[in-house]
Simulated scan of single mutants.
Amino acid sequence: MKIITTILLIFISTFTFAQGGAMADLKFEEAEIAFNKQDYETTIKKLDEFDKLLGSIKDKSLYLRIISQDKLFEPSKLYENESQFNLQTSLRKNASAYLKAMESNGLDERYREVYAINEKLANYPIEKTVWIKEKQKSDLEKQEAEKKNKELEDFYRELTPKIEAWEWDEKIKIGKNIKSLKKLYPEFYKPFDGKYNSVDKLNINIINWGSKNILNLRDLEVKVIVAENDIITHYVLELSETSKIKFLDKWEKEFGEKAISEYLSDDGNVGMYVLQSPISNIKIYIQYVKINGYPTSYNGGKIKNGEKDFFKFYKKIK
């Protein structure tokens, strides 16, 4: 009877082990399938089931778990969500365990990869108390940034209508019908009757701007007016250095220093002071051209819908 019982126990044990091994293989296959689909949470869930069936942790399971956890770890959200701290704590533990267990097996790509992950984690807090302090600091910085952004948003919301309404000359206005303006200011526009030209492009160093109707006002301070379907979208005036200084001072007093930006062309030969709001498609600018490092000429202008190409060859320097 004792012999029969022993044989039966051996049979059951062997059968159970074989069944568990096959099921474990299926779970690992499911983990790999989920990983290839970039479903890393499911991957970890299947690895949990695989490890439980085996009753131990295999190096291939630990490696896949580490890579999946690393994919789920978002350092930018570390101080936003406690689950990210818990994740990186587990990831750190698993990476250290893998490196220790596989060190005697020699260097391979998997070892290199886990080592790199472990080194990256050195930049983040280990202790929960340290994480809490850093989170409090991050929350405070975020609140201050939100407050600043709100103040800036309010500033530009109030500023934008003023910028859009501002003109160099009351006789030339962005968004107005040029024919209507000619009726209002016949003497001003009289020298330019019949001077419409049909062209494909107008190149004025700042942008390439397509237009059907262009007025060249060479007899006055105004150099160019661009109109599309008789609606003025851009105009350029010639300025002196004195008038440039006067207008910049006027802008600063009327709109504030932070409403004015300075840009420089890629070659460093052309610069611009730009009065603008990030919530408006209107740009008011003073352009200057340098020769031998010194500004020699100035143009002023106002443009609508020039966002796409306006800064194409410029970088902001202030």
Rank of each mutant, 00 (worst) to 15 (best):
F310G: 12
D139S: 07
E187Q: 08
N213G: 04
E170D: 15
D249P: 03
E158V: 12
E74S: 10
S277Q: 06
K223Q: 12
W251A: 07
K312N: 15
D139Q: 09
V114G: 00
D200W: 13
V199D: 12
K162M: 08
F313G: 11
L159K: 02
L9K: 06
T5L: 15
D51Q: 10
A97G: 02
T160D: 07
L215N: 02
S83T: 04
D309E: 15
R110N: 15
I33W: 05
P125A: 00
I282C: 12
K120Q: 09
N299T: 13
Q88F: 05
Y273L: 12
W166T: 03
Q38L: 08
E144N: 09
K147D: 02
A22S: 10
P125F: 01
K137Y: 06
L237P: 02
K150R: 07
L78P: 04
K179E: 01
N36K: 09
I57G: 01
G194E: 13
K302E: 01
G106R: 02
L275F: 14
L64P: 00
K182P: 04
E153G: 03
Y314I: 15
E80H: 08
Q143V: 13
K71C: 01
I214K: 02
T296H: 05
A145T: 05
F192L: 03
R157G: 14
Y40I: 12
A22K: 09
V130C: 03
E221G: 04
K71D: 01
K244Q: 11
Y63M: 04
E307I: 15
A18N: 07
K45M: 14
Q276K: 13
I33T: 12
E80W: 05
E262I: 15
S240H: 07
F17K: 05
Y63Q: 02
S61K: 00
F192H: 00
E74L: 13
K290A: 12
L220E: 11
W168N: 04
A31D: 12
K93H: 03
L152T: 11
L220K: 05
E29R: 10
S104M: 03
K120M: 07
P186R: 12
I33L: 08
D266C: 09
T14V: 15
L9V: 11
D309W: 15
V130E: 14
I231L: 07
A101T: 12
E82N: 06
G55W: 03
L152M: 10
D39F: 10
K27L: 13
G268W: 13
S240Y: 07
F11A: 15
A95L: 07
K183V: 11
S138V: 03
L237W: 04
R92Q: 06
T242W: 01
E146C: 01
E141A: 07
N205R: 06
K315C: 08
T16K: 03
I279K: 04
